[in-house]
């Protein structure tokens, strides 16, 4: 959860100052800010559970690509504005479902962070789905770009629903939901939105994987980290 929020938060922040119009610039910066705030909560908790003295900053800035556990979708490049919003929508729809399930976590802290984050992500999803519909069902040009973005990003959706041994152990302990259990309602929500957006969902459900396990991130994450981490690497432990 922390790495997903961190990587997407950083990606979205790359729009700050260069978004198509001022309102979108502000909205993207706000979404990025929420995600980075959530990152501090999740990675703070992760560091505490790990118990080796690493705080959220250490986990964010002192790890390399193979130690990140984010899904491949969030590290994909921004592309054009439509591609960014399609990525956001595909993630938000999963993110809200996951957070809503985590509110019932047997772990009180996970539940508290999820409850807080779900309020923010409800807003994110409202905006990204509105934008996907607006641009999909927009001009010929915006429709074409949104369909291209969907075709490009759809192969990264499946990974969000793949479980592993860690997931199974968490389900067992009542900490987190079975990833696959969120798929049906996700498909329903995304399907309805894409219909309203006049976009065609790709038929092939092939899914790239390897981000969540850390085994095989895409090339893009390393490039992103060189930007995100350079200051801490050049000047270790620098503070404001």
């Amino acid at each position: 959860m922390g790495d997903n929020a961190l990587v997407l938060g950083h990606r979205v922040s790359e729009w700050c100052g260069v978004a198509p119009v001022l309102e979108e610039d502000i909205a993207l910066a706000n979404v990025a800010l929420d995600l980075i705030g959530q990152t501090q909560l999740w990675l703070g908790l992760a560091g505490e559970v790990e118990g080796e003295g690493r705080d959220a900053d250490k986990l964010a800035f002192h790890r390399d690509v193979w130690d990140f556990r984010n899904v491949l979708l969030v590290e994909q490049p921004n592309g054009d504005f439509g591609q960014t919003m399609m990525r956001q929508f595909l993630f938000d729809a999963w993110h809200l479902a996951q957070l809503t399930a985590l509110i019932d976590s047997s772990d009180k802290e996970i539940s508290a962070i999820a409850e807080k984050s779900a309020k923010e992500v409800t807003y994110h999803l409202e905006r990204s789905s509105d934008t996907v519909i607006g641009l999909g069902d927009g001009t010929e040009e915006s429709h074409r770009r949104m369909q291209a973005a969907l075709d490009l990003l759809w192969p990264y959706v499946g990974e969000m629903f793949l479980g592993d041994d860690v997931d199974a152990a968490m389900v067992e302990a009542g900490i987190a939901p079975e990833p696959e259990s969120l798929r049906a309602s996700y498909d329903q929500l995304v399907g309805d939105t894409l219909v309203a957006a006049t976009l065609t969902k790709p038929e092939d459900d092939f899914a790239h994987k390897g981000g969540k396990s850390g085994a095989r991130h895409s090339e893009h994450l390393g490039h992103m980290l060189t930007q995100m981490q350079w200051l801490q690497r050049a000047y270790p432990d620098a503070t404001w």
């Binding site: 309102e23 979108e24 502000i26 909205a27 706000n30 979404v31 923010e120 807003y123 409202e126 905006r127």
Partner: peptide, 28 residues
């Protein structure tokens, strides 16, 4: 105008009567 505004807690609205934009404190 937009779900998001100058701070995380606000959204941007406008009045079509007096034509002034204004901040709305989002309800969460």
């Amino acid at each position: 105008i937009s779900q998001f505004g100058s701070t995380p807690c606000k959204a941007q609205w406008r009045c079509t009567e007096c034509r002034e934009p204004f901040d709305y404190f989002k309800c969460i």
